[in-house]
Design a protein around this nucleic acid. Sequence first.
RNA 1: GCUCCCAUCGUCUAGCGGUCUAGGACGUGGCCCUCUCAAGGCCGAGACACGGGUUCGAUUCCCGUUGGGAGCACCA
Length: 470
Amino acid sequence: MNAIRTRFAPSPTGFLHIGGARTALYNWAYTRRLGGRFVLRIEDTDRERSTAASEAAVLGGLEWLGIDWDEGPFRQSERGELYAAAIERLLAADRAYRCVCTTAEIEVRRQATVATGAKWTYDGRCAAASYGPECGPHAVRLRVPKQGMLGFDDLVFGASGQDAREIGDMVIRRTDGSPLYHLAVVVDDVAMGITHVIRGADHLNNTSFQLALYAALDATPPLFAHLPLIVGADGKKLSKRRDPVSVQHFQTAGYLPEAMGNWLVRIGWSHGDQEIFSQGEIRTLFDLPAVQRAAGQADPAKLDWLNQHYIKEMPRERLVRELLPFLAEAGTPVEPSPELEGVADLLRERSKTLAEMAQRARFFAVTDTAFGYDADAVRKHWKAAAVPVVKDLADMLSLATTWDIAAIETAFEAVLARHSGLALGKLAQPVRVAVTGLAASPGIFETLALLGRERSVARLHRALAELPAT
RNA sequence: GCUCCCAUCGUCUAGCGGUCUAGGACGUGGCCCUCUCAAGGCCGAGACACGGGUUCGAUUCCCGUUGGGAGCACCA
């Protein structure tokens, strides 16, 4: 049996959309599992809306997600002769004809038809006229069968298709000579030997017309698999305005590509009760029959959970590498160090995103004099009664000969005992405020250990000198 | 409006006639742990849209209703 061939065919009209990303992921996974070839094709026939920058954004998004392709990217804007030749062939075989109706004329007739409550399809006025190339400005229309069923067996939706007479003779070449989307798609899919077309369900209704195109081109249609759409949090179509839709948005917000892929693959697909899928599992387990038919909502909270899961599992070195740009972005650039790795380790259980982690790492990345104190934290924990205790601790720590968690804990215990068995919390919280400026942070011993003796003591002294006790 | 599609907890889903007092996960409420925040553990609330059939038996099959979605271009 021959290897399957699939394709992902985005329009570079913005950034990589999460719906498109999922379509690409499904195509990729399906193809990889079956050992086929995955083709990337840029549908940029709409030159108004297509830019090199957005094409780069789409490609970059795919690469970030770990989706690789075997052929392409091909650009439809570079394949015009192919479409022109196909249209000429259809014309020569009388499977298409020239139409001199203007859009204004058609609009009048369309209105009249719609007014009767009927569905409009082109009325075939030019169908029998046999206009030649010299008929003046004209479009080209495909002769679509007027009876019978243009049906297919969708790999996800099952028996699909519609009555041929619902379709009408569609334009395949504009008056300006440019080919229409459907023509270009079908010609390309035939030329590229695509065996499985896996795409969004918004194309389900278009498929019948494309089937007519395959027939007119004497080509065997591929198998089709339509994917339910991803809808917004309100159940409505994703809106660029309301919903975060671009993959790049999530990337810059500090989400990991594996979390993104895991999130997307589970919207509309499942494998029993399994929730966590590595990239490798996706490509060995994904299959079309398990794809859902109902549109699914993208739940950001689930993404957060997934992202934290992958942050918790990530090897220390890579975590730091991923975190670095976010630290710089947060205004606290810092060089990699064993201490930073330690900070990342403490923070991985407390961060949903890398951006959040960078914020939490601020206490470590910021210089000892540049960081500020959270007013609420100071008011709540920097009590007059605590000041002498903190002072004691600062003295004790400044004399410490070893600096590790055990030594710091011992110092705390000694100070606490000296102050008639004060609870640890009464000391830990003011120290936390002095050293991080915040009421919440990783464990206080760990925090001090990573900060080092110099910085810890300096911050305690600074707080003692500057903070108003209440 | 017309054509097509879809319908299990708030969300993603398991379920492919009896195994369902409907399972899991996220989220959510409570408890435990605890120097804070998390993480973690335990417990809880939470759904088969509705109405008809078919069947000994429907979450599962069929038909309506309702609700949602998509498509109806010389856009892609």
